[in-house]
Design a protein around this nucleic acid. Structure first.
Ligand SMILES: NC(=O)c1ccc[n+]([C@@H]2O[C@H](COP(=O)([O-])OP(=O)(O)OC[C@H]3O[C@@H](n4cnc5c(N)ncnc54)[C@H](O)[C@@H]3O)[C@@H](O)[C@H]2O)c1
Ligand SMILES: NC(=O)c1ccc[n+]([C@@H]2O[C@H](COP(=O)([O-])OP(=O)(O)OC[C@H]3O[C@@H](n4cnc5c(N)ncnc54)[C@H](O)[C@@H]3O)[C@@H](O)[C@H]2O)c1
Lengths: 272, 272
DNA sequence: AGCCGCTTGTGAACGCAGGCACAAAGTCGC
DNA sequence: GCGACTTTGTGCCTGCGTTCACAAGCGGCT
């Protein structure tokens, strides 16, 4: 029960009910209009998420001097099925060598290309509280092509104070600062009531990608991409599994199917 | 293009390739063995994630004195399709009144029941650095039934220091402390290299639900549920959309399909 | 009291994503 | 240079999740 695929509900913040169909179900000629253009669009979002994971694993391998990997090795390290991995990679092209595997260097380059990481994406964080501080101080982003270049808040005490090396600006300066620093991604870490207003400001400043930590459903134009990180929801999903397990376990034969081949009943498994 | 469903790749950390089949494809009598028990298991995980969102929206409504909602209103506020909302709610039972809608109070209670929120889930955070501090200080968790009751780290300077009102313990005390405080959920906020070891300790201490912030694929027994929050991946997905857009935009008619019916064709929507 | 309109709950259809399994393809050994 | 082995790339099939659309059910209005 621990795993299952990994299709899941996630960050995407839906909005109008209609464009759903519009996005993918474009009447039909989805693939006709223009083969090339649709190539990029054709990569399933789930695959994109996994590509990002592969990229991290591959980067680690490259650092350790690994020159080439097979789909089996890479999929193992990334925690996915090898067929899925190959299919994911096939979305971005054919860069493997049959009978051998993939060149780490090549894969890294290609995935970076597809994910748009060849160009650095400048990030702005709005709401420099507990979470905002953590994000601003985090060293993992700049190293991966996402330099945090702007911080915003409304608290007068924070104005000009450098956090993680960057001074905090007032949110009124969002348009000016974002334009100057070519911010492409906005991160919202304000209290929930302020989130929508902050979002609107970012959008007005031309930011088209938003990562939202506030537990609020943001309303945005269709041109803007929002992803939501909702920790309370994550905990509740885990809680659901606890509850489910509680309903299952007491009942004698409830879990046989899983134990049969799932579970190393007595401890074991792991094998990391 | 901004939306689309919200099925996505997400937190689930896969592992062995097999239990997939075990989990859902139980030979067949999935629904036979026992109708009731399978009810709970039958709720799609994607639906569980949305239920958590509905719950938050409903809680807000209740606080504002709203007594009843229609599926249309609620789905609008939650940013989903109304049919999907109704189907999600139908997984947990029939608590609506045709022609009228749902009683807010009832829905809140029922969703809480299904998500296992009737019992408080005690949370432990491991790795009290930037992120760990933010989590420990966050007031949103206790209020939602997830009291943070234990903090762990290895840094001697942190031992005993209270963060968010709770003193930090050494990770060697994980078994003892987790047992005493009945921790059911473990949150990993350590550097990546330490994550697997910490995870193993938590599992050994009997924690069966883990929320992992370290960009690492954790290996766990099948009995343990892991969800991953990977901010770098989130940013990369956003980056992908920037790149995609760059490929699309210059091209004249790239977005017509979406605009055609993408935009709240019949007004509706928005109304925030 | 009965009818009308509104909203739920769900059956059925559709489409995407995942997984299996194999043919194509290229390499290495001899 | 040829054969056999290895691993990729992908066609096909299966199944979940989403959406549509409508019948059933309930309250209110006349
Ligand atoms: N801290 C966590 O671990 C955590 C966990 C889950 C969710 N969240 C969510 O993340 C968000 C931030 O959490 P936090 O703990 O950092 O909160 P916080 O209260 O510590 O910080 C919020 C910051 O936002 C600033 N702010 C307030 N209104 C603003 C506005 N209109 N424009 C710009 N800045 C504004 C405040 O001055 C403050 O610095 C909240 O929505 C919270 O629900 C936080
Ligand atoms: N800070 C962020 O915004 C952010 C963003 C994305 C991901 N992350 C990830 O979250 C994790 C934590 O990030 P952070 O910025 O808080 O790091 P940090 O370095 O600030 O804190 C890490 C903490 O873990 C403790 N630690 C180290 N080894 C440990 C061990 N074996 N057992 C227990 N504790 C141990 C350290 O003492 C330190 O207090 C990292 O894996 C990071 O990649 C953080």
């Amino acid at each position: 029960m621990a795993q299952r695929g990994q299709s899941d509900a996630a960050g995407r913040t839906p909005r109008a009910p209609a464009e759903n169909a519009a996005e993918i179900t474009t009447p039909m000629p989805t693939i006709n209009g223009n083969g090339l253009r649709d190539r990029a669009r054709a990569i399933p979002e789930a695959a994109v998420a996994r590509l990002a994971v592969y990229l991290r694993v591959l980067s680690g391998m490259r650092e350790q001097g690994v020159a080439s990997v097979s789909s089996e090795e890479l999929s193992g390290a990334a925690g996915v099925n090898s067929a899925k991995l190959r299919k994911d990679l096939s979305y971005i092209g054919s860069y493997g060598t049959r009978g051998v595997g993939y060149e780490v260097e090549v894969l890294v380059d290609q995935i970076e290309r597809v994910l748009g990481l060849t160009r650095e994406q400048s990030v702005a964080v709005v709401g420099i509280g507990n979470l905002g501080h953590a994000l601003a101080n985090y060293g993992g982003f700049p190293g991966r092509g996402f330099p945090v270049t702007a911080l915003f808040d409304v608290d007068p005490d924070l104005m000009g104070v450098p956090v993680g090396g960057i001074p905090v600006d007032h949110i009124d300066d969002i348009p000016k600062v974002c334009a100057a620093r070519e911010v492409t991604i906005g991160v919202i870490a304000t209290p929930p009531p302020a989130a929508q207003a902050v979002c609107d400001r970012l959008v007005q400043a031309g930011v088209e990608c938003i990562l939202n930590f506030a537990p609020v459903v943001l309303q945005v134009p269709e041109t803007v991409e929002v992803r939501k990180v909702d920790l309370a929801v994550e905990l509740q999903i885990l809680s659901f599994h606890v509850a489910r397990r509680a309903d299952h376990a007491p009942d004698a034969d409830a879990t046989p199917a899983q134990r049969v081949n799932g579970n190393a009943p007595n401890g074991v498994v792991v094998r990391r």
